[in-house]
Design a protein around this nucleic acid. Structure first.
Lengths: 136, 136
DNA sequence: TTCCGTTTTGTAATGATTACAATTCTATAA
DNA sequence: TTATAGAATTGTAATCATTACAAAACGGAA
């Protein structure tokens, strides 16, 4: 436990992220709080110990983490909702480059319901992200 | 084709949606444009033919359609992004009632890559929605 | 036609996110 | 140790999708 900060710093360095103090603390927060926190939550919790922390830093840092692959955003990365006629058995692929969204066939019901016993599942969505053929 | 409006109206009535003219036109737009349109796109396209159409109506109507199950929103219904440490093989279940998000085990790589030949897939996300055990 | 409830409109408010310039920090070299 | 350059952080203002809400328009029943 004594080397926690150091261990975390190592992870950042491996991913080519300079381990500044704030970055380490934000990363540590994510590791210790597996609760899908919002920026707001991260901010209000960490501010108790880091009074000068600003939201802008959190946004910057999370964006950096996402780019480097050690954290990810849980929305499909849209601030604008998009709408769809209800239709079964397809997933959505979003190209990071051109932003286009492609449908692809997938049997979503093949997905087991995992360990969701007793849960009522109304909707199943599968989202992939990457680079489409045309943008490679 | 002559009865298009009427056919669409029937679908709405089946779902207990009073088929007002604007509602039919918005539904028709979704049926004819399988392009995951945004509210902005729906608005600017439909406005050419329906000059008095307002965005508020589109928001209202899409919300109604979603509630009645004939359309769906393609985001996980959050305006606030949530963050996650990168970790493999779990999906996210969001309870519509309490808003909590649960992880569940799933082998996402079991999902075939569908017909995405030549696409580079960086990230695969599975989102379920419904009612959790505690809220039933 | 009149009336009532529903739908639609327009605008103002909200709230997350981004942009950006100014400030602070950090590591390295003199 | 001090100076300096580049990176990180801050704070605030701007942006933009979405929601709230009251007023107006609409539509069907009597």
């Amino acid at each position: 436990m004594a080397h926690l900060q150091g261990d975390l710093a190592k992870v950042l360095i491996e991913r080519e992220i300079k381990p500044s103090y704030h970055r380490i603390r934000i990363y540590r927060y994510l590791v210790e709080n597996r609760t899908h926190p919002t920026v707001e939550q991260i901010y209000s919790d960490l501010q108790k110990e880091l009074p000068t922390l600003s939201k802008a830093t959190i946004y910057n840092t999370l964006k950096l983490f996402s780019d480097k692959g050690i954290a990810k955003t849980m929305t499909i990365e849209e601030k604008e909702a998009r709408y769809d006629i209800v239709e079964e058995n397809h997933g959505h692929f979003k190209c990071k480059e051109c932003g286009d969204i492609y449908d692809f066939k997938i049997d979503i019901d093949d997905l087991g319901t995992g360990d969701l016993n007793g849960f009522k599942i109304d909707q199943k969505d599968v989202y992939f992200k990457g680079i489409c053929r045309g943008c490679q």
